[in-house]
């Protein structure tokens, strides 16, 4: 049952793509996803921190501890 393949596929093709990572606190991080592990720990490049939609900080690289993550969001790839 549980269609894990969809998730594994998503995780295998997400590297190098621009993402929005939302934390449970409501803070958003926008950046390029460098890598991800099974705990949802995330390494982001060119990271921008948004609090209430306002840019608060920029980090070259950032490690985000997975327990704080609500979701990782991507844009659909249109026309390859």
């Amino acid at each position: 049952m549980s269609r894990k393949e969809a998730l594994t596929h998503f995780m295998s093709q997400i590297h190098g793509r621009p993402v929005v990572v939302k934390l449970n606190s409501g803070v958003d991080y926008r950046g390029v996803l460098a890598c991800l592990d099974g705990y949802m720990n995330i390494a982001l490049e060119q990271t921008e921190e948004y609090v209430n939609g306002q840019l608060k900080n920029k980090y070259g690289d950032a490690f985000i501890r997975g327990n704080n993550v609500l979701y990782i969001s991507t844009q659909k790839r249109r026309g390859g």
Binding site: L23, Y29, G60, D61, R65, N67, N68
Partner: peptide, 13 residues
Amino acid sequence: RGDGVILISPPTR
């Protein structure tokens, strides 16, 4: 203690 950590940023390389 690790459970309090949200984000870690290394120096810009």
